[in-house]
């Protein structure tokens, strides 16, 4: 796990400028509660939260059964968000996601013959789009467009989606049978892509010996109102970014464009994504300004699905690719 290297330096460090009005105690509780359920994955929890605070969407790529769904469940419960799960299958249609208008029979209503809209599962604050790459591109793009616009237009009527709106999509590794790989342009809609990874021995022991996770999740109590989450999102946007740090982010972008090992460099949108994630990361660390370490911490999540290595490097693990990127760019 490439991220672990950064994690160990990041986690538990004395805060640079701790001040409690930024880090709400409730957010601490959220983290603590999630860590009690999802054992041995504190970094993934933080990534997910950072993504949420940066108002982006999260893509989790890993094998089935490593806790992707549980993570989504736990976050939804602890944050007190309405939760919907959409299981993507090859025969899933856009209407199954967005909802349909159904003709009402005259007898049941005072007015005769009228269509009534039945909202689909997308109308929730937190969506778990499970195995997104098993559906056809048509169904995928219905979800992705809703993510992008935070509203859906059905039969000429535009309907806003609730706020906060957070999508956690999971996908199976591309080499598995029966998958429609998401094109790069749609991967770009996800702010972060992370991998869960197998739990370490100690955590796994805890899982095997413990109570059924589903029961625990059902018993979790919300630690936060959704209004508080919105306020935290706003605060994350206000975290200070110094000119020196912007220089660093630009240096990273420039490097990906100039180095020969990538098929194409990072876009300005990727740069913005890097900044907003780093801001959220600094907020999670109770700091009011972003440091290069924050950027380095979120680079694996933000960059790995946006960057492709050329020929000779393409077989490298994306984690290695990202580490090389970080090590190649000097902090100005």
């Amino acid at each position: 796990m490439a991220c672990a290297h950064f994690f160990h330096q990041q986690y538990g460090r004395n805060a640079l400028r701790p001040y409690q009005q930024i880090m709400s105690p409730n957010l601490n509780n959220v983290i603590r509660q999630a860590e009690q359920v999802i054992l041995g994955k504190p970094l993934q929890i933080r990534f997910a939260l950072a993504c949420l605070l940066a108002r982006g969407h999260l893509l989790i790529e890993d094998l089935p059964g490593v806790g992707k769904t549980t993570l989504a469940h736990v976050l939804a419960r602890t944050l007190g968000l309405q939760f919907q799960r959409i299981q993507f299958t090859s025969d899933l249609l856009p209407a199954d996601i967005l909802g349909v208008s159904v003709f009402q029979r005259p007898s049941t209503d005072a007015r005769a013959g009228e269509f009534k809209f039945h909202p689909g599962p997308i109308f929730a604050q937190m969506i778990l789009a499970d195995e997104i790459n098993r559906a056809t591109p048509k169904a995928q793009s219905a979800l992705l467009e809703a993510m992008e616009e935070q509203q859906v237009t059905i039969e000429g009527t535009t309907r806003p989606l609730p706020s906060p709106f957070f999508v956690i999509a999971t996908q199976n590794p591309a080499y598995q049978i029966g998958t429609f790989a998401l094109p790069e342009s749609q991967l770009d809609r996800f702010l972060m892509r992370i991998q869960m990874g197998y739990p370490d021995a100690h955590a796994e022991r805890g899982l095997l010996s413990g109570v059924d996770r589903r029961k625990i999740v059902a018993q979790l109590s919300p630690q936060m109102e959704s209004s508080e989450l919105l306020a935290l999102q706003k605060r994350a946007r206000e975290i200070f970014v110094s000119p020196a740090l912007l220089d660093y982010v630009q240096a990273i972008l420039r490097y990906t464009r100039e180095a020969a090992r990538y098929t194409h460099g990072l876009s300005p949108r990727a740069g913005l994504a890097l900044l907003s994630c780093a801001r959220a990361w600094a907020l999670l660390d109770s700091r009011d300004a972003v440091t290069p370490e924050d950027v380095q911490a979120v680079v694996p999540g933000v960059v790995s699905h946006r960057l492709q290595a050329t020929g000779e490097f393409s077989r490298q693990n994306s984690a290695v690719l990202v580490r090389e990127l970080i090590e190649a760019v000097a902090i100005p």
């Binding site: 330096q9 460090r13 440091t291």
Partner: peptide
């Protein structure tokens, strides 16, 4: 200090 190393990483 490595060129890419942040101040606090280096301090650690």
């Amino acid at each position: 200090r490595a060129a890419h190393e942040g101040a606090q990483d280096y301090a650690d």
